[in-house]
């Protein structure tokens, strides 16, 4: 009973954060802030969703099914893949956006802009 409740709560948190990522993508004004929503929230939501599946697999293993161990271990691998690749991909997109000339909207300060300009003058 308590186990079922834990699974429901974990799934609800995960789905809520994924939904937040979608809303954030629609509401924020420029690429960088959209990346904030799209990267952090989906990663965090995926941790909880994978966590619930891992718990289900571990309980199946405990009650004597070898399928459960396979489910849990493969889900851990999927989680590690998400955790490693997601922030790196966001970093690549942000860098490409800045180099292709998209300036942050309503920026207070932009150190990188001054830096690239200086380098071009030196050349």
């Amino acid at each position: 009973m308590i186990f079922n409740l834990i699974i429901y709560i974990l799934l609800a948190i995960g789905v809520f954060f994924n939904l937040l990522a979608g809303v954030g993508l629609l509401r924020f004004p420029d690429v960088y802030t959209r990346l904030h929503a799209g990267t952090k929230c989906t990663t965090f939501g995926s941790i909880f969703i994978c966590g619930s599946v891992i718990l289900i697999g571990l309980r199946m293993w405990y009650t004597g099914s070898t399928d459960g161990s396979v489910l849990a271990i493969h889900t851990i691998f999927a989680l590690v893949a998400i955790l490693l690749t997601n922030p790196t991909g966001a970093h690549a997109i942000a860098r490409a956006a800045h180099r292709s000339g998209v300036a942050p909207v309503r920026a207070v300060v932009d150190d990188l802009q001054n830096n690239t300009l200086k380098k071009e003058e030196e050349k």
């Binding site: 994924n18 993508l25 799209g38 990663t43 995926s46 493969h74 889900t75 966001a90």
Partner: peptide, 19 residues
Amino acid sequence: VGIDTVNTIVISAMVIFGA
């Protein structure tokens, strides 16, 4: 950015499908 978000959500959905 939109495509990247879709990819991550599809991965979560596949894990749920498998379970």
